[in-house]
């Protein structure tokens, strides 16, 4: 499956990665070759094979419904770029 410039731009937008045109052009090339390598998978017949999401056949353990966490806001917000009155600040969100 060939990769177009627009595919890279679209992926970059979905992933919120700013790319210059030069970078995008370079990634079209890189990603194109990676996908070419990946396309080898298409040669393999996987009809009827169930997808494997986890290497072990184990199931989800459930946690008891208990409050185990205490307030650590000030500790957690020490590594935040912008906070005020306990809120994380971002550029104005327009709905």
């Amino acid at each position: 499956m060939a990769l177009e410039h627009a595919d890279v731009q679209r992926a970059a937008h979905l992933a919120r990665l700013g790319l210059t045109d030069d970078e995008a052009a370079r990634y079209v090339d890189d990603l194109g070759r990676i996908l070419e390598m990946v396309d080898m998978l298409q040669a393999l017949d996987t009809e009827g094979v169930a997808p494997l999401a986890h290497p072990l056949d184990v199931t989800q353990r459930l946690r008891a419904d208990e409050v185990t966490e205490r307030d650590q806001r000030s500790r957690f917000q020490q590594c935040a770029p912008a906070v005020e009155n306990g809120l994380y600040l971002v550029p104005r969100v327009v709905e």
């Binding site: 890279v8 992926a11 996908l35 990946v38 996987t46």
Partner: peptide
């Protein structure tokens, strides 16, 4: 960035089955 772009592309609409699902079958 390269891997984020690859992953975003292969999961996106129209490609999921051909890439992700296929890779998980091969994983088995």
């Amino acid at each position: 960035k390269r891997r984020i772009l690859i992953g975003t592309h292969t999961l996106s609409e129209g490609f999921f089955d051909a890439y992700y699902k296929k890779a998980q079958q091969v994983r088995r």
